[in-house]
């Protein structure tokens, strides 16, 4: 089934799938908010890999431009997520995801 000596587009997309799945498992089963944010980064990176592979396959640079934007958004998301984690830690003295239940306006 798996061709080992012949690297096709499918190999890269399958790797991207695996990476996305690992990231999603991390988001669903971990308790620590910081590890959840790291898993989200993994998922974004899986999408980046798929974008670059498709861009190479079709010889179009637009995919790489979008990866550039995704990286900027991912950095922004990490900064905001960590800032929220810091303020939650200050209030509840922990960064578990269930502490977010106690937040209200």
């Amino acid at each position: 089934m798996l061709e080992l000596s012949n690297i096709t587009l499918g190999h890269f997309i399958l790797l991207s799938c695996v990476l996305f799945t690992i990231g999603m498992v991390g988001v669903l089963v971990r308790r620590n908010v910081i590890v959840i944010l790291m898993s989200i980064e993994l998922m974004l990176n899986a999408v980046n890999l798929a974008f670059v592979a498709f861009s190479r396959h079709h010889n179009l640079a637009d995919g790489q431009v979008i990866v550039f934007f995704v990286m900027a958004i991912a950095a922004a998301e990490a900064a905001i997520g960590l800032a929220i984690a810091i303020s939650v830690f200050r209030k509840f003295n922990g960064v578990e995801i269930r502490l977010f239940e106690n937040l209200k306006g």
Binding site: I7, T8, G10, I13, L14, H57
Partner: peptide
């Protein structure tokens, strides 16, 4: 579908 892609496409693009 990825395993289908593996069979259908070639590696010349790399």
């Amino acid at each position: 579908p990825c395993t289908y892609l593996m069979k259908a496409s070639n590696s010349e693009w790399l």
